[in-house]
């Protein structure tokens, strides 16, 4: 499949498309935690790195089949998400942000000293088995499941926690439980994205998963619109392509990221698509009844 597609697409764009797919999976995970449930996580790269190293170590050192390794990486990330979220999600939002930063830093320092992962030198020789087809099949599955989840009772309750925690409790929502769930699912997708990333880049180092990577992922969610699936996808696409297109001004990329966050928060705190709903668009174009109203 990849061979056929790559005949028609320039290798450079092919690479960007794969990276876009991986970033969509990562960002949709973060969107569940931060965009939908409103719990600011700034250590998503930590989960990514857990998934990347776990799956890579399994395929390289233990010759585990790729799919099993990928799943194992995602599960390990989810397990850490669960263990970290359980005690900390009872805390107020700002503390969670710090805990997640701290967690990601600890993970990074751990892998800097971890022999089987090549320590600071990095981990090379990972089989390059992540394909375009695989990434985009997974992207479609993840989008579909996300969509179903967010339009279910559980998803609505997650939005409700973001909007008003006390009112959510008064509606019978066990807020801690759902926050932990969102966090765990987010970590799972982080781990999945990490595994795909490792087996595409075939070389990883702890520096790939530093604080700036977490911020980049957060930016994708915030730029597109917190809690919105189309928004998060758009954010991932823009922020994957932009630095590639703006290679000349690569040095200024982070300056731009920083300013972007401030400007967005002041002028468009809900992101590009955060408060655009398909219902409103449909209403503008037709007078017919529409059924779904989730953004």
């Amino acid at each position: 499949m990849d061979a056929i597609i790559s005949q028609y697409i320039d290798a450079y764009y092919f690479r960007i498309l794969i990276l876009i797919g991986i970033n969509i999976i990562l960002a949709l995970g973060l969107n569940l935690t931060t965009g939908v449930t409103g719990q600011l996580s700034m250590g998503h790269a930590g989960f990514m790195s857990l998934g990347a190293y776990t799956s890579a170590i399994l395929t390289v050192h233990f010759a585990v089949p790729f799919f099993a390794a990928l799943l194992a990486g995602a599960l390990v990330a989810a397990l850490f998400g669960f263990l970290l979220g359980l005690p900390t999600l009872r805390l107020e939002g700002d503390y969670l942000a710090m805990v997640t930063i701290g967690f990601a830093e600890i993970v990074r320092v751990f892998f800097l000293n971890f022999e089987p992962g090549g320590k600071a030198v990095g981990f090379s020789g990972i089989p390059q088995v992540t394909t375009f087809t695989l990434v985009w099949i997974l992207v479609i599955i993840v989008i579909y499941l996300n969509y179903k989840l967010l339009n279910s009772r559980t998803g609505r309750a997650m939005y409700a926690i973001r909007e008003n925690e006390i009112a959510a409790e008064a509606s019978g929502v066990n807020t801690t439980q759902l926050k932990v769930l969102a966090f765990t699912l987010g970590a799972f997708l982080g781990g999945l994205g990490g595994g795909l990333f490792a087996h595409y880049m075939f070389f990883i180092e702890p520096g790939n998963f530093g604080f700036m990577k977490s911020i980049e992922l957060l930016n994708m969610v915030v730029l597109g619109g917190m809690g919105s699936i189309p928004g998060t996808i758009l954010g991932s696409i823009i922020l994957t392509i932009a630095p590639e297109m703006l290679r000349i001004v690569q040095d200024y990329r982070l300056l731009f990221y920083g300013a972007l966050l401030v400007i967005l928060m002041i002028f468009r705190p809900n992101g590009l698509l955060g408060d655009v709903r398909f219902y409103d668009i449909k209403k503008r174009f037709s007078r017919k009844e529409v059924k779904s109203c989730q953004s």
Binding site: A157, A160, A168, Q294, S295
Partner: peptide
């Protein structure tokens, strides 16, 4: 209320 949810979703969440 859940301000950025629709009126319908506010009520649907109520039945959680």
């Amino acid at each position: 209320l859940f301000n950025k949810l629709s009126v319908l979703d506010n009520v649907r969440t109520g039945s959680y």
